[in-house]
Amino acid sequence: MAVEREDDDKASDADGTGTKADASESKTADPKAVDPKAVDPKAVDPKIAAAVAAAEAAGVQSGEAVRLDSWIWSVRLVKTRSAGATACRGGHVRVNGERVKPAYSVRVGDEVRVRQEGWERVVIVKRLIRKRVGAPVAAQCYVDNSPPPPPRAAVAPAGIRDRGAGRPTKRDRRELERLRGLTGSGNPGHPGPPEGG
């Protein structure tokens, strides 16, 4: 088999391409050659790299400030900028442990805590951006230290009525309340059925 390889190498050198011999030698000789398995696939993806470059180009110049409500919207922690401002005013957003206003200037290294729907997102600011970007790029603008979200309660949809069945009767409403767990064993103000009768 070694003879065939030498012949193949000579043949490739003879036609001037030198592909097989050069390829095997370049892997060992070139110190800049990178093993594709050792590289992070997110860093190599050209779409993500282009999006990051665009976000940096449209990003903040040195010395400029970014509003907190704008930043948490840009990195997709809230759905709209006005929702971010409302969350700040309501005390659901904290920066370095303190309640802040929507116009607070965010800096690199700040810890931002956003409380939403029963759990809290904890992120450290890595990059300041003003414009909303895609999720892969947004994930590179902060370090996510959030605890895992709470498990969703597996609740069966209780009391779905057929379309056109009309209003539920009082008996139907009691059954729905019992299924939903809104009442224990009947109406607390009602004495219940007479005993022994």
Rank of each mutant, 00 (worst) to 15 (best):
A135L: 08
Q140D: 15
I124T: 15
E117P: 03
R113K: 09
P151I: 06
K126W: 06
V143C: 10
L128N: 03
V122L: 07
R152A: 12
R132C: 05
D172L: 06
P149Y: 03
G109A: 05
A156N: 15
E98N: 04
R113E: 11
Y104D: 00
A153V: 12
R171A: 11
C141I: 14
Y142G: 01
Q116L: 09
A158L: 14
I160Q: 15
C141H: 01
A153Q: 12
G109W: 04
G164Q: 05
E117A: 15
D110M: 06
K131Y: 12
A153M: 13
K131I: 11
V100N: 04
G97T: 08
K131Q: 15
N96I: 11
P148W: 04
V123L: 05
C141F: 09
K126L: 11
L128I: 10
R115K: 14
R115P: 02
D162T: 08
E120P: 01
I129K: 01
G159Q: 04
S146R: 02
G118W: 01
E98Y: 09
I160K: 13
V106H: 03
K170Q: 12
A158P: 03
G166N: 10
D110Y: 02
E120Q: 14
P102A: 06
V108M: 07
P148H: 04
P147G: 10
A135H: 09
G166H: 10
S105T: 07
D172T: 12
P136C: 15
A153G: 11
G164M: 09
Y142E: 02
P157A: 14
P151W: 04
S105L: 01
R152W: 09
A165M: 06
V112L: 14
A139C: 04
I124H: 05
L128R: 01
S146K: 13
N145H: 09
A153H: 13
G118F: 07
P150G: 08
C141D: 01
E120S: 14
T169N: 09
E98A: 13
Q116R: 07
V106N: 03
K126P: 08
V108K: 11
R121K: 14
A138E: 00
R167G: 15
D110A: 04
P136Y: 07
Q140R: 09
G159W: 03
R130S: 08
Y104N: 03
Y142K: 00
K126V: 12
P102W: 00
R121E: 05
K170V: 12
R163C: 11
P147C: 07
A158F: 15
I124W: 05
R167M: 13
R167T: 14
V123E: 00
A139I: 03
E120N: 08
W119Q: 12
D144C: 12
T169D: 15
G166F: 10
P150Q: 07
P102V: 08
R167W: 14
G159V: 06
R115D: 10
P157T: 08
P150I: 06
R163F: 08
V114D: 02
E120W: 09
V143Y: 01
P149C: 12
K101M: 07
I124A: 13
G159N: 02
K131R: 14
R121P: 01
V95G: 03
P151E: 03
A103T: 10
V108H: 00
P157D: 07
R132S: 09
S105D: 10
E117L: 11
E98R: 12
Q116W: 04
R152N: 10
V155R: 15
G97M: 07
P136E: 15
V155S: 11
V123I: 13
I160R: 05
V143F: 09
D162N: 11
V112T: 01
T169G: 05
R132Y: 06
